[in-house]
Computed example of a mutant assay.
Amino acid sequence: MKRTVVLLFALLALLVPGIAVTAPATAAPLACTAPDWVQGQFYAAGSIVRFQGAYYIAEHDNPGYSPTVSTWYWDPYTNCDGGNPPACNYPDWVSGQWYPAGSIVRFQGAYYVAEHDNPGYSPTVSTWYWDPYTCGGGNPPNPGGFPVSESVFNAMFPNRNGFYTYAGLINAISAYPAFAATGDDTMRKREAAAFLANVNHETGGLVYIKEINEANYPNYCHWEQPYGCPAGQSAYYGRGPMQLSHNYNYKAAGDALGLPLLTNPWLVEQDSAVSWKTALWFWNTQTGAGTMTAHHAMVNNHGFGQTIRTINGSIECNGGNPAQVQARVTAYQNFTSRLGVTPGDNLYC
């Protein structure tokens, strides 16, 4: 989103009839003093907040939705000294419009470059055709600053299913920008290694997209939920890097990501970026069987063991299945070694 300060004030005047708003005499960028975003607090259209080091403006009234997840409600705000990178001037994406390779568009508050010619496919769904684009100098060699390069990722998962693309992972990280981007270089690399080690265990090295044991499929529908199982009794089996399962998890993840996962859970096995996003949703927002999110565990030095507890602690921790715990720890030690950092303390649960 690109607005001059004058246009912003004009917008506010339209949104609040009867209130006179005087634009500043200069259009120079302002030093932002906007308050930190607060989850659950009501924000009227035009509100400006600070979130994870960047600034956002509410495009629509909302009850405290996340600025980086609920991008229909928020846009990046770029009129701040020291705020976001230089603004892009690229047009909004249009469904059905032809885009040759190299085209750059704005979609849901972010920018994307066409990697392949396409007839207007969605930048966040058709991730083979589009890659995230960083304004001001183009994309860095390692998109988004993720501390695992594509070549290292490929070496970590030599037998991975082609569905689990590196581009899909990088696309998904935009929904949770604090992931593997918090703290110093060691902390960032440890979190990336911890996430990928658990993903490795859940999917057999990024080989399996969905749960193997089909006999379990009907067990993940909980009709007692008020929304039931609109996709069918057997539709909510484990899928994706974290094997998202149960209708209530599909509902919660879909609501958080703005995706119809309750009615169309198959998206998690059909779109790489969506699949990765569900894994990052769990990693960054859910406490699972533990007492903290896996992200919190890694950025607050609670150790890799707490990520195991969050993901499958009720079965594996406290001596429940030491072989499974060891497999996760071994993968984590391997991945941290590849990234050139020590694994830290508290590896077991």
Results as ranks from 00 to 15, higher is better:
276 W>P: 02
196 L>P: 03
273 A>I: 04
267 L>C: 00
132 P>C: 07
243 Q>A: 02
327 A>W: 03
85 P>Y: 13
272 S>Y: 00
293 T>R: 01
192 A>M: 06
269 E>D: 12
148 V>K: 03
239 R>V: 01
44 A>N: 08
65 Y>K: 07
10 A>H: 09
180 A>M: 08
146 F>H: 02
53 G>M: 10
167 A>Q: 15
54 A>K: 15
79 N>Y: 09
15 L>K: 10
275 S>W: 04
323 A>V: 15
113 V>Y: 07
171 N>V: 06
313 G>L: 08
95 S>P: 03
310 T>S: 11
220 Y>V: 02
150 E>A: 13
57 I>H: 04
149 S>I: 11
35 P>F: 11
185 D>A: 15
1 M>H: 12
154 N>E: 14
302 H>T: 02
332 Y>E: 01
189 K>E: 07
204 G>F: 13
58 A>N: 04
24 P>T: 14
256 A>W: 00
267 L>H: 05
136 G>C: 04
2 K>S: 08
49 V>L: 14
220 Y>N: 02
47 S>Y: 06
2 K>E: 03
79 N>I: 08
95 S>G: 08
213 N>M: 10
5 V>A: 06
338 R>M: 15
294 A>P: 00
253 A>K: 00
279 A>K: 06
335 F>A: 03
130 W>K: 11
227 Y>E: 13
45 A>S: 15
8 L>G: 01
193 A>T: 03
114 A>N: 01
325 V>E: 15
300 N>C: 06
56 Y>K: 08
175 A>Y: 11
218 P>V: 10
281 W>L: 00
215 A>G: 14
263 T>V: 13
208 Y>N: 15
222 H>W: 12
323 A>M: 10
28 A>D: 15
216 N>C: 00
133 Y>L: 11
153 F>M: 10
123 P>C: 09
175 A>S: 14
308 I>M: 06
179 F>Y: 12
